[in-house]
Design a protein around this nucleic acid. Sequence first.
DNA 1: TTTCAGTCTGTGAACGCTCCCAGACTGATC
DNA 2: GATCAGTCTGGGAGCGTTCACAGACTGAAA
Lengths: 333, 333
Amino acid sequence: MAKRPTIHDVAAAAGVSRGTVSRVLNDDRYVSPAAHAAVRRAIAETGYIVNRNARSLVTQRTGSVVMVLSEPHEKVFEDPNYSTTIRTAIRRLGERDVSLVIMLAGDDGDRERVVRYVRGGHADGVLLMSTHAGDPLVDELESLRIPAVACGAVIGKENVIPYAAADDREGARQMTRYLVEQGRRKIATITGPMDTPGGIQRLEGFADVLGRKASRKLIEHGDWTQLSGESAMARLIERTPDLDAVFVASDLMAAGALSTLRAAGRQVPGDVAVGGFDDSSVAATTHPPLTTIRQPLAEVAEETVRLLLTLVDGGGPVDPVILPTRLIVRESA
Amino acid sequence: MAKRPTIHDVAAAAGVSRGTVSRVLNDDRYVSPAAHAAVRRAIAETGYIVNRNARSLVTQRTGSVVMVLSEPHEKVFEDPNYSTTIRTAIRRLGERDVSLVIMLAGDDGDRERVVRYVRGGHADGVLLMSTHAGDPLVDELESLRIPAVACGAVIGKENVIPYAAADDREGARQMTRYLVEQGRRKIATITGPMDTPGGIQRLEGFADVLGRKASRKLIEHGDWTQLSGESAMARLIERTPDLDAVFVASDLMAAGALSTLRAAGRQVPGDVAVGGFDDSSVAATTHPPLTTIRQPLAEVAEETVRLLLTLVDGGGPVDPVILPTRLIVRESA
DNA sequence: TTTCAGTCTGTGAACGCTCCCAGACTGATC
DNA sequence: GATCAGTCTGGGAGCGTTCACAGACTGAAA
């Protein structure tokens, strides 16, 4: 392979200096139309491409951001929602010619690698995914003063790490209200982990609507996995056999709840109505298909990226963005 | 934030020259134990981290590889299998301190961006995912002579792009044999797209077992999506109402086939046995749970990464790796 | 005519690293 | 004590950019 052309080669081909080429490359002021045209032509002729390493060396900017997935290894991606977010982020960043590096932060070794990466100046910004409350990584990033945003709030850091998120609380209210309207009287809930915004806020929304009817014995906690949905449902029907509805804080857990109910001989929605949350891809494949709350995942991802790019460009402090959810009625409720 | 320490600072702190520090950093020969210790200590004290840009500028190596997802935008990630592959790749690469950049290659604009990225020397290698037959990107990468491997064969380029893959053909044979052993007589199949290895080879395996009984009218094609599974199944039962089994080349399509069968009033597995492929996460949530073929996805991903790193390290030509599949019996067959 | 602001261009000096070469120092061998 | 191979170290050059600055040229205003 022939050696790659450098800015010198372009300058020579265009009959101008390095400086002028650089100015054209960076859309700087003060380049005559003639010089501009000559440089453009020379770039096309030589097939020149800027060397980002050389550029980064002097600008201290990398043209890439890192997405950090803070889940224990086994769980990463278990939630199909990740896919949408990643895809959307790549696309939006790509349009701005920013590339996306993905790193895991499931254990201390991983976290150290992330910190080293960021401290090494290899990313202009950090996009946090599913970061749990108290994650030490957040403090470290904060002290490095690198632009950071989160997709979904970081509990306890809502005022430090800007974020975009779906309106979990209102979404939970929508579903709970719907169950009430359908005439359900004994409504239980299976929540997510209580150190995640989805876990906390979806329970709050549930309680907002039911008030004191949301008794402790009608609440069980899961960890977003299907298996945890199964066992939480089992505990609920054992404790309150006459419940007639359950709001499950994620579709995957709802799928688990459905199998438990089926195994227990309860008809859905005849005996028990089941409401999910997410409108993820499993929602359509369960039997019966899940009535659920759709989160505008793509929009959340887009907003997250927008926030990050604003920060990276020095666009000053930004406010969290909360996007509305929507009830999707299928057959389970 | 204080300016980041450079190799000069470390050298000064250790009382040696830049050259010696660089030698320690790169595990070069000829460094005295004393100098080595002094440098290590100085690195710890100063909190020094190498600047990869500066290093790349001279070594022409980046310490990162790019994963290219060659699917039309809407489809990327639809298949939950992506998640496993990405996660595994990140982890294995991370262990070697190689970072992973993900790019989309769904349209020409995307492809051009990928080529520019690679031509710009920003990656040491390319990991292709689900690349279709005839993708122009492959030729371009070939001409750039950058190490490239694929996760799953690239049709028509099997001898050019090394790959790791599950044994699709044998997997299809396993399932078909199983259906025959269960006493099924009229066995149909829903294939994947015929420009993908999974589409082609799973059909071949099916035909291997059934011989001339695999008549054209028992074959329908899908595009991996659930919807395509639904409609393919509808065409099959219309054309051959007395079929008693169907081998579907992916779990997602099988989920679609299940709903069509249910809507048509056929009992599964009573009237019609359904066999899937992938053992992806949907396989357990369908009703009834899918009997399917498990692909060793994580191992495939690991092998793919290993191949790539071997190439990147100049480890010479490598051979494709084919890994065995396994029948998972649940309830649908 | 002079002055001046505005426009445009070229050049040297970084950025932080690795590579290579020259040279110093060891100890063993002739 | 000279030679030599092996070990170890320092420093100059260069990787491909951007940035700051100096200087040249314009045309309009004083």
